[in-house]
Structure formats: structure tokens, C-alpha cells
Simulated assay, not measured.
Amino acid sequence: MKKLMINNERGFTLIEMMIVLLVITIILLVALPNVTKHSSSINDKGCKALVQMVQGQVQAYYMDKQTYPSSLEELKTDDYLKGSNLVCSNGNPLSIDGKGNVIVTDSK
């Protein structure tokens, strides 16, 4: 007499897979708004840091030349700033007013 080998392998049913996908979807729906909220906060802090860095270079320029630069291009030409990307992460460029203050100009 032959013994029957019973295959006792169990897998996931379709219902179990659907429940897992539902739980993952709910977790993503809860987590994504928080991530985007923090992303804009990070962009704002990065923009403030860029303004402070450029303001420091304006002050260094003033200490050397006893006058404020008229533009960011003047700072670049005199090697106080390197690189050409002086734009905040929100797309607004930086500029210098007549009193030597670095401001974020609204590009809209």
C-alpha cells in the first residue's frame, strides 16, 4: 500500500493580501501629508540660511570697501560669492537693497 503524501503548504489568500494592502495604503495616507508639511518647512529654513550667508558676504564686502555692493553680481565679480545659483528653493531670487540688506524678491 502506497502512502499518500499530503502537501501541507499554505500560502496567503487573496483576502489576506487585500487586507495587508489596505493597511499599507492607510499608513501612506496618514504619513504623506506630514512629510509634505515638513518639506516646505525645510525649504523655508534653507532659504533663510542662504539669505544669512549672503548677508554675511555683504558685510565682509562693506568692511573691505566701505560701501555696500549694488548687486549680487558685484559680489560674484569681486569673489565674495561663488556659484551662480542664488535662488531660494521656492524659486524666488535674492537681491540687495540700497542699504545693503539681502532680500528675497517675489518672482510672481
Results as ranks from 00 to 15, higher is better:
Thr13Trp: 02
Ile6Ser: 03
Leu32Glu: 11
Met17Lys: 10
Val23Arg: 09
Leu14Asp: 02
Lys3Gly: 03
Met5Thr: 04
Glu16Trp: 14
Leu28Trp: 08
Val30Met: 11
Ala31Gln: 15
Asn7Tyr: 00
Val30Gln: 13
Val23Ala: 14
Lys3His: 01
Val20Glu: 13
Ile26Gly: 00
Ile24Val: 07
Arg10Ala: 02
Arg10Ile: 02
Val20Cys: 11
Phe12Trp: 13
Asn7Trp: 00
Asn8Arg: 10
Gly11Cys: 02
Val20Lys: 11
Met5Lys: 11
Leu4Asp: 05
Ile27Ala: 15
Phe12Gly: 06
Lys2Tyr: 14
Arg10His: 05
Val23His: 06
Lys2Glu: 14
Gly11Met: 06
Ala31Gly: 08
Ile19Val: 15
Leu22Tyr: 12
Lys2Ile: 00
Leu22Asp: 08
Ile19Trp: 08
Ile26Gln: 03
Val23Asn: 00
Met18Asn: 11
Val20Gln: 14
Ile24Arg: 00
Phe12Ile: 07
Gly11Tyr: 07
Ile6Pro: 01
Ile26Thr: 11
Ile15Thr: 05
Phe12Asn: 10
Ile15Arg: 07
Leu14Val: 11
Leu21Gln: 13
Ile19Leu: 13
Lys3Asp: 05
Glu9Thr: 07
Leu29Gly: 14
Pro33Tyr: 09
Val20Asp: 11
Leu21Tyr: 08
Lys2Cys: 06
Ile27Trp: 04
Leu4Thr: 06
Ile26Met: 14
Leu21Asn: 09
Leu4Tyr: 05
Lys3Phe: 03
Ala31Phe: 12
Leu22Phe: 15
Arg10Lys: 07
Ile15Phe: 06
Ile27Gln: 05
Ile15Cys: 01
Arg10Asp: 00
Asn8Glu: 00
Lys2Leu: 07
Thr25Pro: 00
Leu32Gln: 11
Leu14Phe: 10
Asn8Met: 04
Thr25Gln: 12
Pro33His: 06
Thr13Glu: 02
